[in-house]
């Protein structure tokens, strides 16, 4: 064999160790130095640079190049900014019937967009634009809280079931079975029906809508997290952690859970979109906030239906706003799913 026997060559050092060139003159040494320099030059740039790029960071850099993600992010950012700074952006008070004497719904007299009221007036002579802006705030609140409720309860149930199923042995499987049967029952109910039931139980209010929509999302999150945890639990690195002697609860929390959260986080952006639509639907059905001083897109849509033939614009604005916002969250969620998908990672 030509190479040095049993030479242990770490992979990190591509340049051969300078062997003792005892016999050679300076020419030989110079030649050797030249060839090593040349090799280093040809291989040069590859070893520097990237320093500890985690999965989230690489996913983020992929997100930045996706047109879908950028569109979604712009819509979502716009929506959030409007919602946060709503009182500053709204030119008028949303409840003030300042122009009440200009609108007569029973005579089909409405006021469309004009210089002082950008989106016109609603049926009670309130500024539609101000109501839309303030409504964004309510909608964001409903979406976020509902998603948080769904995420929190769902992740707790699903996480417990998933951890019990993967690491709990016989008892764990029983716990998992019990939790999942409950989840299955929840899943069997149509989302909207479930929400209507909750709303009917505790009466119409904003809290009702948020709770109802949130609870409807629980089984989705629970199933998703449990499935991800079980598939991660079968991976070799979990076995490796067990072989290392890591405690089970620590394996579940530091190994399985962080690796299973990807799909759940993607789902939560998608859920935000459906939560907004569901909340609008519930408000439309009259289960939302009965207090007119807090305009909400769903309620506005519901109110506008009475004047659909004479003033369709009153329905179009909130409907468009709901659609565009939901689209923004969906685009962002889909782009995140793609960025985090291991199959698309090289």
């Amino acid at each position: 064999m030509p190479t040095t026997p049993s030479a242990h060559n770490p992979e990190g050092s591509p340049v051969p160790d300078a062997e003792s060139a005892g016999t050679g003159g300076t020419a030989l040494l110079g030649r050797k130095a030249a060839k090593i320099d040349r090799l280093a030059e040809l291989m040069g740039p590859r070893d520097e640079g990237t320093h500890g790029a985690g999965i989230w960071r690489t996913a983020f850099s992929r997100l930045r190049r996706s047109p879908m993600a950028i569109t979604g992010a712009i819509i979502v950012a716009g929506f959030v900014v409007v919602a946060l700074f709503a009182p500053l952006l709204a030119p008028y008070a949303p409840t003030a019937q300042t122009w009440g004497d200009e609108v007569f719904p029973n005579q089909n007299i409405f006021v469309g967009p004009r210089a002082e009221n950008w989106l016109g007036l609603d049926n009670l002579g309130r500024d539609q634009f101000s109501r839309m802006v303030i409504g964004a705030r309510q909608t964001l609140l409903v979406g976020v809280v509902a998603t948080l409720v769904g995420f929190g309860v769902g992740a707790l149930l699903g996480g417990t079931a998933g951890a019990a199923a993967t690491l709990g042995g016989r008892w764990g499987r029983t716990i998992d079975n019990a939790i999942m049967r409950v989840i299955d029952m929840m899943l069997a109910l149509p989302t909207l029906l479930l929400a209507v039931t909750v709303a009917a139980l505790i009466g119409p209010s904003l809290t009702t809508v948020m709770l109802a929509v949130g609870i409807a999302q629980v089984p989705i999150f629970a199933r998703l997290l449990r499935g991800a945890m079980i598939s991660q639990g079968n991976r070799d690195y979990v076995l490796a952690a067990r072989a290392l002697g890591v405690r089970k609860h620590k394996i579940a929390l530091t190994h399985i859970l962080p690796n299973s959260l990807g799909p759940v986080i993607v789902q939560s952006t998608l859920t935000l979109a459906t939560a907004i639509i569901d909340a609008a639907a519930l408000s439309y059905l009259g289960l939302g906030n009965p207090d007119p001083s807090f305009p909400e897109w769903g309620t506005m849509l519901a109110d506008a239906q009475r004047f659909l033939s004479s003033a369709p614009q009153l329905a179009v604005y909130p409907a468009l706003a709901i659609i565009v916002t939901a689209l923004g969250f969906t685009l962002l969620g889909e782009a995140m799913r793609e960025a985090l998908d291991p199959k698309l990672r090289k």
Binding site: P5, A7, E11, P14, V15, P16, L42, M43
Partner: peptide, 24 residues
């Protein structure tokens, strides 16, 4: 008697022998 390094250490063929960095 293993070959040192891995295929990641290659240089481009147009620069020279791709195997050179792993070659004794």
């Amino acid at each position: 008697t293993p070959i040192r390094g891995s295929v990641n250490d290659n240089i481009a063929w147009h620069d020279g022998c791709a195997f050179a960095p792993r070659c004794d």
